[in-house]
Amino acid sequence: MPEFYFESLSAFWQMGGYALFVWLSFGSTYGLLAALWWFSQRSQSRILQDLAKKQQREHRVRAQQQLEEEHNESKT
């Protein structure tokens, strides 16, 4: 098992003077990856709901059309 390389936690954060570049890299990488996952997950969990709503709307429209047809038939 490899040992912890830095002498202290503050030395770890300073990254031998390269803190800005190292943390910028790791931060942007995992930020971007997390955003990609979040967006993909969101569209996946929303799509079935959206499709269900669409179906309900279709049902409603069809029901309404049928009602109107019945109404027109009873008129004539």
Binding site: P2, F4, F12, V22
Partner: peptide
């Protein structure tokens, strides 16, 4: 945290 630093690039190589 658990690898040594590079002899030329120091800790920047961790990228």
């Amino acid at each position: 945290g658990f690898t040594p630093a590079d002899y030329q690039q120091g800790d920047s190589y961790r990228i």
